[in-house]
Design a protein around this nucleic acid. Sequence first.
RNA 1: GGCGUUGUAGCCAAGUGGUAAGGCAAGGCUCUGCAAAAGCCUCAUCCGGCGGUUCGAAUCCGCCCAACGCCUCCA
Length: 482
Amino acid sequence: MITVFNSLSRSKETFVPSSKNHIGMYLCGPTVYSEAHLGHGRTGVSFDVIRRWFEYRGFNVRFVSNVTDVGHITTETDDDGVDRIGQRAKLEQLEPMEIADKYMWSYFQDLAALGVKKPSITPRATGHILEQIEMVQRLIANGHAYERDGSVYFRVRSFPKYGHLSGKKIDDLEHGTREDVREDKEDPLDFALWKFAEPEHIMRWNSPWGEGFPGWHIECSAMALKYLGENFDIHAGGLDLQFPHHEAEIAQAEGAGYAFAKYWLHGNMLTIGGEKMSKSKGNFITLADFYQQKAEPMVLRLAYIQSHYRSIAEIGDEIIEGAKTALSRLREVKRELERRIPEASSGENPSLEKALEKAVTEFEAALDDDFNTPKGLAAVFDLTREVNTALTAGTGRSSLEKALNFYNTFVGGVLGLYHSAQSTATDDAQLLEGLMQIAIEARGVYRQNRDFSRSDGLRERLKSLGVTLEDTASGTRWKLEG
RNA sequence: GGCGUUGUAGCCAAGUGGUAAGGCAAGGCUCUGCAAAAGCCUCAUCCGGCGGUUCGAAUCCGCCCAACGCCUCCA
């Protein structure tokens, strides 16, 4: 039984899928007008693990995650509000669509490096203009929307549930709203479904209301309904999208007469120096820079997973350093299992069997409980100590095989921590292995002759190239980095 | 101003009524030619502060302090 924290009820609920073994899940993706940063990575990884957990539990997940490639206006109230994609296009002297494509692909690449699985479907807003127009028409017909000078607005007051998801009262909102509102709206709360395109606006489409472009919120409603149908299971996104984006999505979908998502999941933000990392604050670190300057992607993935997806997470250098060591521990135990299993004596190792049973039980309970990855990791590390002890004894092959299976299933399959970025070509890997054997043999001769200055010198030179040698009872082995 | 979240060891982070998981760092030890890896041991009488409820609270209630988030584009 899986329990999920549903933002709609603000409490943990038993997850009841809409059909026995199929789950529909929608995740709001980014607007692709600049490089993805650590925050995008966190949301990607959080919901990737959640998706993988559902799959582990036997569900077939249709995971839809969009990319927003229409440039939306920065502020609705401001006349000098700019279209971010258009602005960037001018800056880089490219077509708006070139900007969208450029950053969409870099986003995919940065997330793929983190081991985030591809969505089942990645719809783009510009590819669903018709669906959005149709939805706006339905909203007008239902009395939830109205047209003004080529723009169409959602009539927030016509949808009493507006504010439920984020726990906001419409009347409180109004007080906080700035007074410099566009006069063409009936109510300052109303939001745009379709915007009239000023002559200088490049991205524009024909519509029943003239040339314009869709509002930000409508794409997700339209695309989620198109690919997941009514009443799908999960709608997810960053907490910063809860209001107004998700609130608007619900209003649009239900206002148009459709049932919408049953569970709303929100991932929390990342902070840097105690402050939220965001594009608007400019205090972000891009994923690409992180990989280049700080650590490999898997270190970041582990750092993310070490905190719960609903908690605020601070990503500092100390955490990254810690994650490096912890990741290496998880990799080493798996490698050592693979090395030692062929030569281990057959049979079971009773204490390891017991530890395995405990680890599986605890890991499953942790992930079933609103995807508690830090708790799941604790179970993994507890087991790791037991496995290393068993490896020293070198007995119980069948137990060691079970342990290896644990790492592959949970650490690799569910947590996704064994994804390797460096896809060294097979030929190169074989060459490297061969060369290393020669180096190790040569050093072995020095060691046999007790010529330690030479053997240590060799080890140092390899170390400076990023190759570490370890002398063990069963011979010398090597690994890259660290 | 409105709504909300958080405060657990040097750092990160679970726990959320029954007496403090896990990771990193630090110190000691075992093994080893040395190193690394691995293992063992140590490392919060205490969970922002003050009161209250209870046989019993980090966990529930109240007040206070601090930080952060949303209310505007944002994962």
